[in-house]
Design a protein around this nucleic acid. Structure first.
Lengths: 242, 242
DNA sequence: CTTGAGCATAAACATATGTGAGTGCAGCTC
DNA sequence: GAGCTGCACTCACATATGTTTATGCTCAAG
């Protein structure tokens, strides 16, 4: 495998400086890299992992199945996301994580994480920050789900994904690769597949996006933001002392 | 004020042991206590707090207002909850926090939190855990909002609040004091006030709850859990080494 | 004792979104 | 190149939930 910047480091460095020692500690934390194929579980509900999974490449979704078989996706993960860092302290997974595409995953043993919390306070805060941003995204999704129309909600999600992918260098101009089916989008937004389709058509008709195959292009960022009532504050994209 | 167990310590000790030194560090972290009246903001969106607020008594809500004036509540907080611990690292508040009742609030300066992360790794992990549980609750709410019926969602919320209040000794038998209006419940569940009323009537008619004034009594826990598809795993109520 | 505010409740009606069933295309496999 | 399979996409119809407006309680203020 070619040596390239770990996307987690890329992600954290947008929020605060990391010392060389901290970066080394992170790089060394990775014990092994694994490939998970699309539609396979990366972690299952009820598992008690002894290591956490860092997504190096691909798309993954945290999800939960409810009684009538319906599924809700509570988070979408992209390169650089520490998928189940929370299992380090929460111990038991209360939801599963699914690979939406082929995923390249690095593993960090919980014992290593514990050592980091013992020895690197600032790096610990940065990992904590990472989970706090996940929480902020959850809150934003709750607001969008509860109080925005389906169309606005979809626009919001697209804005968010674009910025998150941009933060880890995964955009090409105004285009992102979004290899997610409409059914999966429905499970993310809490909508039916049919309605996802209607909503996407509307965004297309309004000239806000183009979405063919996996390539999603943002045609009018300002209007898309407005439709989705999107502000990026919650993503904490500023570099600050933390 | 009478000296009584800090509800945060109570809350954390359900999840793992705290040493005397850690408890002392927590007690000492509190710089001043303040009363906030019902319907006042505790923190406002856009604020950059230099201290975090710990709720000692009362009910508070994290909320966000969207364009047409509608409001979404993304979290309900009870005694022992560290309302905006995340502002320690996220810096800028992306939402406001409102007192739903008169609230007694302790303040912990961010500088003190930083010192704790430098000196008390295990206590740091416990505070981190605290924010992780908030995140787990967010995910659960997302699932309930996206994929449960309004009635099930309400039942779910009631189950959760009951257990969370029980964990800090705020239940009397099967009854909790829930001084929250139906409009506020609507903003929490993403429903209209009218529909909240319908749904509560249904739960009453089914003999699952009694809810008069502020007193909410659970009449049939098992059936309420079933209706709300509630499992408590996500609340991490087990004591474990963390 | 009256007034008014804030809520819970109600009924009639409106609509965003869900459901079920089906079509057609693009890319695989054999 | 025939036949699958997985998706995007459509249409007709169903329904959960929202909206508007109004009523009546309860409790505090005067």
């Amino acid at each position: 495998m070619t040596r390239m910047t770990n996307p987690l480091i890329l992600k954290l460095e947008q929020r605060d400086q990391l010392s060389d020692e901290e970066k080394r500690a992170l790089e060394n934390a990775i014990s092994r890299v694994r490939i998970v194929e699309a539609d396979e579980d990366i972690v299952r509900e009820g598992d008690r992992p002894t290591e956490s999974s860092l997504l190096l490449d691909g798309f993954a979704a945290r999800y939960k199945i409810v009684s009538n078989g319906r599924r809700q996706i509570s988070a979408l993960h992209v390169a650089g996301d520490f998928i189940d860092l929370h299992s380090f302290l929460l111990k038991t997974m209360d939801h599963g994580v699914l690979a939406l595409t082929t995923c390249r995953i690095a593993h960090v043993p919980h014992t290593t994480l514990e050592k980091i919390t013992d020895e690197y306070p600032h790096l610990t805060r940065m990992l904590w920050l990472n989970t706090l941003i996940d929480g902020a995204i959850h809150r934003e999704w709750l607001t969008a789900m509860g109080r925005l129309s389906a169309t606005a909600h979809m626009a919001h999600l697209i804005c968010e994904l674009f910025l998150r992918l941009k933060a880890v260098g995964r955009t090409e101009g105004d285009t992102i690769q979004l290899p997610i089916t409409q059914a999966e989008l429905g499970d993310t937004l809490g909508l039916s597949t049919v309605h996802v389709n209607r909503v996407l058509q509307e965004l297309r008709k309004e000239g806000l996006i183009r979405f063919q195959g996996d390539a999603l292009t943002i045609l009018d960022w300002e209007r898309l933001k407005k439709v989705g009532e999107f502000t990026s504050t919650y993503l904490s994209l500023q570099n600050e002392d933390r």
